[in-house]
């Protein structure tokens, strides 16, 4: 009885985990036309890491299961303030462990903006100072740390980039 229960529970959990990963991959490979009702703000790209992700409107679990999300309460992406984007460390933002100071980040929303990574910090989840409003245009990427931790990680990996150019999409 116990063995059957463990096997069934294992299969269910394994399916749930696999389903999440499959859903993430399907969403990443889907074209914009295939996801017309999904609230996507634009696209985030880090050319050196080969990272290209749709930016969701929110950072709720539903949005982060599909891609990265704009952190509510922070400035609009590509604006003059500090815009925050959060993503899962084990799916969307996994390549961020290879990020370096000086890497170029591009956001394509209503405003095409180019940022350059200036700071990489590991902070306590309660420390939100890096999300505070700034006097210069910033982009702050947040994910969990350590990257290989299984479960709810104890720290946050924060990358802060400064805007170097911006151009409105015609």
């Amino acid at each position: 009885m116990l063995s059957k229960f463990l096997c069934a529970a294992g299969l269910i959990l394994f399916s749930l985990g696999s389903a999440q990963l499959v859903r993430f991959e399907l969403f990443q490979s889907a074209s914009a036309a295939a996801i017309p009702k999904t609230p996507v703000l634009g696209k985030l790209e880090i050319p050196r890491l080969g990272l290209s992700l749709p930016i969701m409107e929110d950072d709720d679990p539903k949005s982060l299961a599909l891609s990265v999300g704009h952190i509510p309460g922070t400035s609009a992406i590509g604006s003059l303030g500090n815009a925050g984007i959060a993503g899962h460390r084990d799916t969307a933002f996994r390549p961020l462990r290879r990020v370096r100071v000086g890497d170029r980040i591009e956001t394509h929303t209503g405003q095409n903006a180019v940022y350059v990574v200036k700071r990489i910090r590991i902070v306590d989840p309660a420390d939100t100072s890096l999300l505070h409003e700034s006097t210069s245009p910033l982009l702050t990427l947040v994910t969990c740390y350590p990257f290989d931790y299984v479960g709810s990680a104890p720290y946050r990996f924060v990358i802060q980039a400064e805007m170097t150019a911006s151009r409105r999409i015609k």
Partner: peptide, 10 residues
């Protein structure tokens, strides 16, 4: 602003 950093562990 959020009081804590977003939960980013899937």
């Amino acid at each position: 602003l959020p009081k804590t950093m977003p939960k980013t562990a899937s």
